[in-house]
Nucleic acid binder design. Structure first.
Lengths: 219, 219
DNA sequence: CGTTAGCTTGAGGCCTATCAATCATAGTGG
DNA sequence: CCACTATGATTGATAGGCCTCAAGCTAACG
């Protein structure tokens, strides 16, 4: 692992990840904190397309998001390990490489899953689905226990993920709390009854519980 | 090219692509016709997540869509070339392999682009954006000329792509025609003024005009 | 202690869904 | 050749989910 490691970035809260030359030659392993990747339209609307969690492996083509309204930003203090792609391929880091290949499949599955949410679920089900997704992904890397996890997203950011207004997200969260499905308070999410949450979200475990290989062991 | 070719499927109109054993070991090149990949929810709602156009390269993990509401279906008569992944890698088909790698990036870009649409655009802009996307993708493979192309999708399918009801898509299409932005009649789409369509769609050419390498030359 | 970011609440209105019916077109079989 | 059927497109009416604007609230922070 060490031989491929170029450096470790420490990114402050709410800071944007700078695009660097040669970043297309690197893989990035999120060690700590969350990242959101978003796209801003000309009319000011913003849509978050990816939520990167600890243990996630991702590659950013440098030219891909320059001056096009794309942005990758940290939610809270974050550490990112930068790995050289070529070394990962050549050395005995085959496991990492295969995990990278797999990560792209997982990425596509999450994107499709969220596409279904935005297209066919109302705000309540979308919110429930997002929380369920985050819970399952975090559990795989040991960051969610007994129906509870820490979520650094603001309500405004959740709105930008789900394609609704911040005002409406606020009301939906209150409704879900009244129903005893989700309690979201001070960056802490609690799920009293996962099965009921799945029902509210039409969460399909076979389809939506995407398999992310845990890479915390490598960190 | 020939040595990697396993077979060519001819799929009839509105037929589902059957999942076969070992299909994860194959790449699929759409030679003729369109494909839609959709996901059906437990409540009956359907969301189309991918539109596969001639020249597109795609791989389908077999187990990925079994009994989970996923479906890949032909819109009209279709021919699909099946290639062996391993042969593609080993032989001098490196160009194909790189194109496959690239196709996955393109796929992710399209998914994100559509996510932005569903999250942050109204039905009118979504429709305009979809038409612009299809036009640019088809033009790369020589299937769109002078602001016009053939589109085998029904209004119902367009609705399932854009996450709106068929009734509403019908009204939006009429509105766009009245505005002189899109004329859609008998599977033929005409774009009188591409620049105005881009404005209506907040289409960002740098971001949304995804680069798909044309593979028609290989067919 | 003023400032700021984020959360909360209310009111009004638009966009879009839903239900229901009609129309157009093509294919089918008697 | 003509019902008969099926699929898709069209139109109208009603309802509801969600947005927008606007204001007040809270907590953290320099």
């Amino acid at each position: 692992m060490i031989e491929a490691l170029v450096e470790v970035w420490s990114v402050g809260s709410n800071q944007s990840i700078p695009v660097r030359p040669r970043s297309h030659a690197h893989l990035h392993l999120l060690v700590e904190g969350w990242l959101v990747r978003s796209q801003t339209l000309s009319d000011g609307g913003r849509q978050i397309t990816d939520i990167v969690l600890p243990g996630d492996l991702c590659g950013w083509a440098a030219a891909e998001f320059q001056g096009t309204g794309e942005d990758i930003r940290a939610c809270g203090p974050t550490r990112i390990a930068v790995l050289r792609k070529d070394v990962v391929i050549e050395r005995d880091l085959f496991a990492v490489w295969r995990s990278w290949e797999r990560a792209r499949d997982v990425e596509a599955r999450i994107l499709r899953s969220r596409l279904v949410s935005l297209g066919r679920r109302n705000a309540r089900a979308r919110t429930a689905h997002l929380v369920a997704e985050l819970y399952h992904r975090l559990r795989r890397v040991g960051l969610a226990d007994s129906g509870s996890f820490r979520c650094p997203l603001t309500q405004g950011q959740i709105a930008d993920v789900l394609g609704v207004s911040p005002v409406h997200i606020n009301r939906v969260l209150q409704e879900l709390r009244r129903e005893g499905l989700i309690a979201f308070n001070k960056q802490q999410v609690m799920i009293p009854d996962l099965a009921r949450l799945h029902v509210a979200a039409s969460f399909d475990e076979g389809l939506d519980d995407v398999g992310v290989e845990a890479f915390c062991s490598l960190i």
